[in-house]
Design a protein around this nucleic acid. Structure first.
Lengths: 211, 211, 211, 211
DNA sequence: AATGAATGAGCATTCATTCAT
DNA sequence: TATGAATGAATGCTCATTCAT
């Protein structure tokens, strides 16, 4: 499951996890550049040298943190859409799960923000691949929806990308309007409008769109 | 037009502008934390002390850069929607102008990203106010569209916030899928779906939605 | 009266005095190294360039401040011993005047302290000369006292130097014991003991020595 | 013996001492404000980071240097008065030891001067306490001298403070008259006069007063 | 003569990384 | 294998001095 291949002969999984967990927390809290590796080591209860032995360098530690968060997000969303549902319903559940994930774990979001800011999408291939796999899963959901007549005939992949962008934007933008809207509130509203836009039959669109 | 009032007795507008311009460029290029003020000074052709005389400190310089980009974005979008158009058409023009702005000036986007990452939306009030004013303008457009029967009866402010979030997300997310889609392509697709979701009459929705 | 000879063609005495006055105050308050010439200029109500036109550079300004304080001290002590008094009485009056001068104007003392710390007695000759002249005056007082049988036959110049050292030390050391003794209290006690040590006739020494 | 407790997990005593030694030298040589910590690090043969690891910051390093000098002075004087001597003799030995200490190590004096100039007696409590302890030791010597009839009945603590002030002043003032007197010469003269002023029986005073 | 805008050398402090133990 | 002491490159900011106006 782990993508990085350190020249490490033996590993203590507990220490590894502890470091990773604290890394996520600290990177999120103070940002990549402001993070002092010593702090992570201290919080994880290991020596600084151990952090370097396990993760190579600060940047790779950050990537590992990112990847871990991405996995957790993937797992969370995947679990949320378990079961047989219509395509639209699946998309709705996925979207809300995505928003909840970040609403409940704001520091996870901050890791992504750091990633975007510091490395402009220059993530390791493993990350991109993981991301693409997730998108692909839901592109298939859209195609199924189209096939079943629930969704208008749209470019499935482009549409799921647009939807992902919207959610990505919502969770990020929410901090600017947090005095007025909760994240999940904003996410749901956007979701309603977006789904209304792709559904085949508009007659039932009104009911889940507020007002 | 400028909101910051430094304790500067007199200003040379050319130097001020040169510094600001290079600050935007450098902050965008290497990020806030990685930016060496000396580099900005050098590129602007002034002494480092002059940068500090004009902008106080690195953080304030960054805020000035952010604000300037925000103004430019505001001006660009405002100019794009000049003239009498239907509400939906106005929203479309605004959205596309927004996307174009960042597609043509990728470094402007990076300034915003830095802002989000380093300061988590803790911008000066002047920035937030400016942002709110822009949102308000387009909330009114939506209300007009509702009044004219072009747009479904939705919460105008929440809807424009959701739309802004979507665009914010699109321009930010684009870097992750740039191998597959151009920013404007993604923006247009999202825009079509979103507008389809809010338009009153779906019969004409198909025409501007792809396929 | 002024010792420094600047290449200044014309001078405005009021500005000159204002700068000097503020220089004494600021140097005393924050120390030579911590003094920002701009602050002196601002407080004196002149441009920074003017300070440099009048005093050449920061160090010379400092020397001028020192010299001015030295003059004031000299004047104060000289005035205090006006009139015909016995030698011991004259020394006593001078000593107490010296202590009072610094007790009433603590910032004057700080200028001397800065001088000692920053330049280790490397004052311009004009300063040393002034200092020697003062010492000489009181060396003569001691010689008079010896001649008149009031003072034991001691090396007059060495003795006045020792006495000056004692007072220099007292006003400087006082800050370390200020919780326990006032400066003038400490000065008087030292003075009593010292004078007792040089007076010819010890029978009258007891009266001015405490207890 | 050392009072400062840095947040340092382990110390290399040699490096610690080397840094402290060079700090004393450099602070004395160029003054606190003019001291570049890099220079101390270089002279001590350690990295700059090591200086900070051991002493926290420049100011604390300075205090450690001051305290160390104070300890050395205390040790030197204490050693000098070992053995059974009369009170006056003990005071004389202490005074001369004090003067010798600074005459032989002029840079030690400069550290104290810096302290006085930069921090106006705002030393850490540990320093003040150390100082008071020393004064107290000699206040007891004076009281013993009074009890044994060697010294006139004076306020012992005030008198030792005055004597300390005199010596403090002498070692500091000496630089201004170094062309004429050596420090120890001046100190001895002052000492003679001072002791003459406090001794009970003047008949034997003449012998140790010069001329 | 008077000014104050412009400059850049200078310095305290931090922290990623290494490597001896 | 694990550690943390040691390092030195990197950088924000200040301020004495100059000089064009």
């Amino acid at each position: 499951m782990l993508s990085t291949d350190q020249p490490v002969t033996s590993r203590n999984a507990e220490k590894y996890d502890a470091i990773l967990e604290e890394a996520i927390r600290v990177f999120a809290e103070v940002g990549f550049r402001n993070t002092d590796v010593q702090v992570i080591a201290d919080k994880a209860g290991v020596g600084k040298g151990t952090v370097y032995r396990y993760f190579g360098n600060k940047e790779d530690l950050f990537w590992a943190a990112c990847f871990s968060v991405m996995e957790r997000l993937g797992n969370h969303v995947t679990r949320a859409v378990q079961g047989n549902h219509g395509a639209l319903q699946t998309l709705r559940m996925a979207g809300m799960a995505y928003a909840e994930f970040f609403e409940n774990n704001p520091h996870y979001l901050d890791v992504f923000v750091q990633d975007r800011a510091e490395f402009r999408g220059a993530a390791p291939d493993s990350h991109k691949q993981f991301q693409q796999e997730i998108l692909q899963v839901f592109a298939l959901v859209i195609e199924r929806g189209i096939a079943e007549g629930e969704i208008r005939p749209v470019d499935a992949h482009k549409t799921i990308t647009a939807m992902a962008s919207m959610f990505y934007g919502t969770v990020n933008f929410a901090c600017y309007v947090k005095d007025r809207y909760r994240l999940s509130e904003l996410a749901e509203h956007g979701l309603n409008l977006f789904l209304a836009g792709i559904r085949q039959d508009r007659s039932d669109a009104v009911k889940d769109s507020d007002q």
